[in-house]
């Protein structure tokens, strides 16, 4: 995978981001403040999800550092 796939993903993200690019001014952040828009709300839930996938798949990563390992891997 592939440099081609990675590059395609990078391009897709960059395109998506650039056509919608209009960083909000402070008074326009009402929507961004909603709980559903947060990346790190529901700590325990996301930790459980990561932990389950970590024990089902070859490797894990991307979400953060420092959770500590376990023998499931």
């Amino acid at each position: 995978m592939r440099p081609v796939a990675s590059l395609a993903l990078l391009l897709a993200v960059a395109t998506l981001a650039s056509c919608a690019w209009a960083p909000p001014r402070p008074w326009e952040k009402g929507e961004l403040a909603k709980p559903a828009m947060q990346f790190d709300a529901d700590r325990l839930e996301s930790r459980i999800q990561e932990h389950v996938y970590q024990s089902k798949e070859a490797a894990s990563g991307g979400y953060g550092v420092g959770g500590g390992g376990c023998g499931c891997n």
Binding site: A17, W21, A22, P23, P24, E31, L32, M37
Partner: peptide
């Protein structure tokens, strides 16, 4: 990055 008023 807050991309716009509706996307992050």
């Amino acid at each position: 990055q807050a991309v716009n008023a509706n996307a992050i």
